[in-house]
Simulated assay, not measured.
Amino acid sequence: MNFFSPSTAANPFGNETDRLALLKFKESILTDTHGFLNSWNDSLHFFCNWCGVTCSKQHQRVGALNLEGSDLRGIMSPHIGNLSFLRFVNLRNNSLSGKIPQQVDHLFRLQHLNLSGNMLEGEIPVNLSYCSELSIISFRSNRLTGKIPLELGSLTKLLTLNLGTNNLTGGIQQSSLGNLSSITQLSLAYNNLVGNVPEELGLLTSLSIFAIGPNNLSGTIPSSLFNISSMNTFSPTDNEFKGSIPPYIGLNMRNLQLIAIGGNEFSGRIPASFSNASQLRIHVTENNFVGQVPESLEIFQISRSSV
């Protein structure tokens, strides 16, 4: 995703607030193995030419910060909140630690926030909900704790929410994520979530990826989730879900490419209608299914002895 074009013309009147905020960000980085931030200094005063920084053409303010895979070690400076024109932040695959700064709530233009693949700790800031333009939040593979904030349900423009592979606890609140009517990708996998899957998640009719396992969730899967025709990945694997899989699932979810329901307590028969999803990969082991695997599913290489 590219919102901006790099500026090449020097601007002696570049915004001093942005320049100082970037220098404070650099001060919080303890190790820059590959020297990506070497250009962040007073010898190259115009910050729009600094590595990983992109400015909007109109205002010459920092609009994007992209330092993905730069092997940066340190913390996220709270001064990032002073970059008030930021729309795009990608700090994925570094070694950032500490907490996500509360000051992100100043970034009311922010659309894309990817902090995946770091060592961030603490809770997800509740005031992230003030960033009402957010369409992508990815905090996958960190060390975040606490509950999923109810306030995230107010981010009605959200398309992707990936909180997988953290240490989140609590449940999936029905008054929160069920409001994200535009969301297409929802991943809460590899956490310590408990409780039921709220019926309201079945209202998320644009979902293509729904991944909620492994966790410690229980109860039944709302039947409305089996009716979402846009779904291509459905993974409640390794929880404590019970109930049966609707026989019509393969008719309503023809775009399914992966269904991972293994490691639960599902019962009944494996639906023959799975064969209607022509590109399907399926994992159903470690459940309580009965009967024979339908002959039509042999092409998916399901072991008869493992179901």
Rank of each mutant, 00 (worst) to 15 (best):
N2W: 01
N2D: 09
S5T: 08
S5Y: 00
S7D: 06
A9F: 05
A10C: 05
N11H: 13
R19F: 11
L20N: 10
L23Y: 05
K24W: 03
I29P: 05
I29R: 01
L30A: 13
L30K: 11
T33S: 15
F36V: 15
S39E: 12
W40R: 04
S43R: 03
C48G: 12
G52P: 01
C55S: 02
C55R: 10
H59F: 12
R61I: 10
A64N: 09
L65D: 12
L65T: 07
L67C: 07
L83Q: 00
V89H: 01
V89D: 03
N90Q: 04
L91F: 12
R92A: 09
L96V: 07
S97E: 14
K99C: 09
I100H: 01
P101W: 07
Q102S: 15
L107N: 08
F108G: 00
R109C: 02
L110C: 00
H112G: 00
H112W: 11
N114F: 07
N118G: 01
N127L: 10
N127E: 15
N127V: 00
L134C: 07
L134E: 00
I137W: 07
R140A: 15
S141C: 07
N142K: 14
L150K: 14
L168C: 02
G170E: 12
I172L: 10
Q173A: 15
G178D: 09
S181E: 14
Q185G: 09
Y190M: 12
L193P: 08
N196P: 01
E200M: 05
L204A: 06
S206D: 06
F210V: 08
P214C: 02
I221G: 01
S223D: 15
S224T: 09
L225H: 04
F226V: 11
M231G: 04
N232W: 10
N239D: 06
E240F: 15
G243C: 10
S244T: 13
I249E: 00
L251K: 14
L251M: 11
M253Y: 00
L256F: 01
I259V: 12
G262Y: 10
G263T: 03
F266T: 07
A272N: 14
F274R: 04
S275H: 06
S278F: 05
S278T: 12
Q279G: 07
Q279D: 14
R281A: 13
V284A: 08
E286T: 09
V290T: 12
I302F: 02
R304F: 15
S306E: 14
